[in-house]
Design a protein around this nucleic acid. Structure first.
Length: 418
RNA sequence: GCGAUCAUAGCUCAGUUGGUUAGAGCACAAGAUUGUGGAUCUUGGGGUCGCGGGUUCGAAUCCCGUUGGUCGCCCCA
């Protein structure tokens, strides 16, 4: 016996029954984002490795150990994208979209790849829906993005995650804060966990959201970014908050919130939930005012976010999402089978979801199948019906049955008027 | 990369101190009505007990290894 080939660890199948959730999430994102003036962009899932190294940051875990990178046949170093922003910005620059209009409002959806150990809400191939805006410095766009994100969740009926915002400052003010924090942590090195001692040098901000209780106590009085913002960043953040207040958007300020990617500046945010085990962020993003230039483009600001579709799906109840046939045609006898097939094809052309039993089975078996599929109606077609040209249409929920001419128009009418 | 934990039918699980052909419920299929679903009943198909090795007269059960899943750490959407 041949051994069945399995899928790759962390690369999952999304099966019918589950996929309906995904369709709903994607459709909702398209509708909400496009209402806000965004257009879809589709970029490759593979880019030159250099793009990610430069944008995400050489020293981040993502670039250091989580990327699927390899050398292709042309000796190019390429990488399956670990996130979406880099590719979108690369395209924005390469296609010179800024020449026509420095303001681009783009959204994307698709698979991302990170070679991490899979666990709840975290897989090696995972999916993100994200949005990016270029060319706008005004904090109103920060607020627009946040309101759009909140509205997306509201429309899906997901109320659990809460919005947290923070500001990371800019190249003007962040170095000074970083130094002050480092100095503070250095003084308390003994009370920190091993991880945090390492973080003092690698990423001091990380120590602020360490889960170890001792570290939380040790950093309770640590300097806050918000108190080290330069006047420009401070005003920007205050303005974002004012606009959120004015639009009735609820949020909380979390000055200990940290971002994993190097390119973030000023406003950062997360939608967090307690329902996903150790993965608390459902969506996250922020401003990246230096990235476009860093990647060889014009000096334009940017802001964006991404959400994890698997994580959104985990928060979404799956009731009432399965698609049901409008009609099942149960045929008795070979000639009736031919007619049933012909009718099915015609009715499908009318936009109805119609099914039948392909292998000749008993009428009882066909009725069972109609029931299992959840068909709203079943058309019973046998020799008698072929002679009279009138079929028996049964409404499955009530069991009521009526006779109808075997004409697609008559059947379509009967199905749609209920 | 580190740690914990689990693995018996498609799914959820039972399987006694190691003992004969490994069971149940659900699901699936056929029938009870030779032309009518759901409820009930009957019958049926389906299992390398994750894999490999060891102990033993005998292993789903005990031991070792290994693979896979899940969860946590790290990190992240």
């Amino acid at each position: 016996m041949t051994v069945a080939i399995t899928g790759i660890k962390g690369f999952n199948d999304i099966l019918p029954g589950e996929v309906e959730k995904w369709q709903r999430i994607e459709a909702t994102a398209r509708r909400v984002f496009e209402n806000c003036g965004f257009s879809e962009i589709r970029v490759p899932i593979m880019e030159k490795t250099e793009l990610f190294a430069r944008s995400i940051g050489d020293a981040t875990d993502i670039v250091e150990k989580e990327m699927y990178s390899f050398v292709d046949k042309g000796d190019n170093r390429v990488t399956l994208r670990p996130e979406g922003t880099a590719g979108v910005i690369r395209s924005f620059i390469e296609q010179k979209l800024h020449a026509q209009d420095p303001v681009a409002k783009l959204y994307y959806m698709g698979p991302m790849f990170r070679s991490e150990r899979p666990q709840k809400g975290r897989y090696r191939q995972f999916h993100q829906i994200g949005a990016e805006v270029t060319g706008i410095t005004n904090p109103r766009i920060d607020a627009q993005i946040l309101v759009m994100l909140c509205r997306f969740f509201a429309e899906l009926g997901i109320t659990e995650p809460t919005l947290q915002i923070n500001s990371l400052g800019c190249p003007e003010c962040r170095p000074a804060y970083r130094a002050a924090l480092k100095e503070y942590l250095e003084m308390r090195r003994e009370s920190l966990c091993d991880d945090c001692r390492r973080r003092i040098d690698t990423n001091p901000l990380r120590a602020l959201d360490c889960k170890v209780i001792g570290c939380g106590e040790a950093t309770a009085e640590a300097p806050s970014v918000l108190q080290h913002l330069c006047s420009g960043c401070d005003e920007h953040f205050a303005s974002v908050r004012r606009h959120l207040d004015a639009t009735g958007t609820s949020y909380s300020v979390n000055h200990r919130m940290v971002r994993g990617l190097d390119y973030y500046t000023r406003t950062t945010f997360e939608l967090v939930t307690g329902l996903l085990g150790s993965q608390s962020a459902v969506a996250a993003g922020g401003r990246y005012d230096g990235l476009i230039q860093e990647l060889g483009g014009p000096k334009l600001p940017g802001i964006g976010f991404a959400m994890g579709v698997e994580r959104v799906a985990l928060l979404l109840s799956d009731e009432g999402l399965a698609r049901r046939p409008d009609l099942f045609i149960a045929a008795h006898g070979e000639a009736a089978g031919d007619e049933a097939f012909r009718l099915m094809i015609l009715l499908q052309g009318e936009g109805l979801r119609v099914e039948l039993e392909y292998e000749g089975k008993s009428l009882k078996s066909q009725m069972r199948r109609a029931d299992k599929l959840g068909a709203r109606y079943t058309l019973v077609l046998g020799e008698d019906e072929l002679v009279s040209r009138r079929g028996k249409l049964k409404e499955m929920a009530s069991g009521e049955q009526q006779e109808l001419p075997l004409e697609p128009a008559a059947l379509a009418r009967a199905l749609s008027c209920s």
